[in-house]
């Protein structure tokens, strides 16, 4: 009887813990999406740091998804990932724990994040598949998934097209994302 009660308690505890962890994961993803929406809001109106193409009526042209870093290393920076190897730096305001986290995420990220129309006010966004973007070469930049760190106070964003890479750090100021500093920009001729 006691054994039965105990098994019941254990099972119940495990269910609670797994629910909790699952809820936490969803909460984290939800938070990331909230922050990504805020980045789009803060950077596509006045300061188009993401160099997003717009139609005349302001409709944004975006790929269907953010690329993961596995794609990035497969398609770009093939030389051993030299460009995105984060090391502690005063210039970039990166401390060791930031670098450990950023390197871990960039090396292990294999999930695509799909861009949803509902993220944008009035759904003013047009998403183009990779094949459509190849057809219309105007929209060739690939966005990588933003990486948030320091408790969502800093963010690393990057995008590339052809042999060019643009990457920046953003920071949170007064509940808005603002441009912080360049990480690396590469232009090959």
């Amino acid at each position: 009887m006691i054994e039965y009660i105990f098994k019941l308690i254990i099972t119940f505890t495990l269910i609670v813990i797994s629910c909790n962890s699952f809820a936490q994961k969803i909460k984290k993803e939800k938070r990331e999406i909230q922050e990504i929406k805020l980045i789009f809001k803060d950077f596509t109106n006045n300061n188009n740091i993401l160099q997003i193409n717009k139609e005349l009526d302001g409709t944004l042209i975006l790929p269907t998804h953010f690329k993961n870093y596995k794609n990035y290393f497969k398609e770009f920076d093939k030389n051993g990932g030299a460009l995105l190897n984060f090391t502690p730096s005063k210039i970039h305001k990166l401390i060791k724990s930031d670098c450990v986290y950023l390197n871990y995420v960039t090396l292990n990220d294999s999930n695509l994040l799909f861009i949803e129309k509902s993220w944008f006010p009035n759904n003013k966004v047009k998403t183009l598949t990779d094949s459509a973007r190849k057809l219309y070469k105007h929209y060739s930049q690939d966005f990588m998934k933003p990486i948030f760190f320091r408790n969502y106070k800093r963010c690393f964003i990057a995008f590339y097209y052809s042999d060019n890479l643009y990457s920046y750090f953003l920071k949170k100021k007064n509940k808005h994302w603002v441009y912080d500093r360049v990480y690396k920009i590469v232009a090959v001729d």
Partner: peptide
């Protein structure tokens, strides 16, 4: 490539 420019910070 002939040349490459990088802004490192």
């Amino acid at each position: 490539a002939y040349g490459e420019s990088q802004q490192l910070s």
